[in-house]
Design a protein around this nucleic acid. Sequence first.
DNA 1: GTCTATATTTCGATAGAC
DNA 2: GTCTATCGAAATATAGAC
Lengths: 185, 185
Amino acid sequence: MPTPDRTSLDAIVDAGRDILEAAGIARLTMQAVADRVGVRAPSLYKRVRNRDDLVRLITDATVRDLGERLAAIGVGTDPRRELAELARAFRAFAHARPRGYQLIFAARPDPAGPSMEALTRAVEPVLRVTATLAGDHHALDAARTLTAWANGFVSMEMAGAFNLGGDVDQAYEYGIARLADALAR
Amino acid sequence: MPTPDRTSLDAIVDAGRDILEAAGIARLTMQAVADRVGVRAPSLYKRVRNRDDLVRLITDATVRDLGERLAAIGVGTDPRRELAELARAFRAFAHARPRGYQLIFAARPDPAGPSMEALTRAVEPVLRVTATLAGDHHALDAARTLTAWANGFVSMEMAGAFNLGGDVDQAYEYGIARLADALAR
DNA sequence: GTCTATATTTCGATAGAC
DNA sequence: GTCTATCGAAATATAGAC
């Protein structure tokens, strides 16, 4: 073995995620990733097709991460409590990895990527709780209402769109309570 | 007058908006804007500080546009109906100008820009209807719930995140009805 | 105010040696 | 698989003539 592996795909993706969070998508360059994993930029192309491919891999990894957080919310006896915990976990994830989160829900040129299937799996716990609350027939509509609200809330929060004062945490709890009421029929 | 004005700030901003919608933010270059308004790229710098400034101006114009659409929803006698019409107008605007819409709610390095004050004014009709429905005390929380849902819905819709089938238009109407119920207390 | 010309920077990606 | 070297492309922004 003339030249042993000095890095790996996982290391590259992890480095990319770190750079993304620390410096933003514009600073997520092949050069920056290479510096962080300790190789030269051209070496990255042995494991990643191009920059777009790397961004896609980072998005996928982030979606899986979100899915794990939501799946960690155990199925309880009280669906309203479960809804609340899912919503809080969702927001906490967005706060922990804001740029990766934005990447998940950013409009892509090709909307039908593997990230979207993964996203569907990630929010499966939501579909489960809305089925319990709203019934199987309205489960999908209810899940869309709930995820739309949660996503919109944290997006606006992170964009600084909540600038009229008031307690933002409390506004989120208000939304949780109102939506739980609204969906439970 | 040796060299009469061959363009204007309004023309530059309008051209930028057109390019943004047609080709995306990455293709919104000074060169492309210059081509469209019919001058050379350096001439733009007489009216716009730099590219970031142009993007800000485009965002502001788009926010004002959204505000006019929402303000056009007259105050009716039925607040639930008014809520529904505001929500539909909001979504229609996002569909008509998807990239400009995304720009409004995109996370910015400086969250406290003039765009955000303008956005606050733009969604004032929402605050008015939630005050009627939920009471003055909960008007802000309710407005945040409603705008978060609407924004999240169209964002996910445009990102292709609703890929489990079902009727997306119907899901939006479902959300309208549920939120009107939930906020009316 | 607009132009030509150009400086500067940055980045993605490839070729070919080892 | 990693490296050095480099290409090529693009874009922002400025200087100075008219």
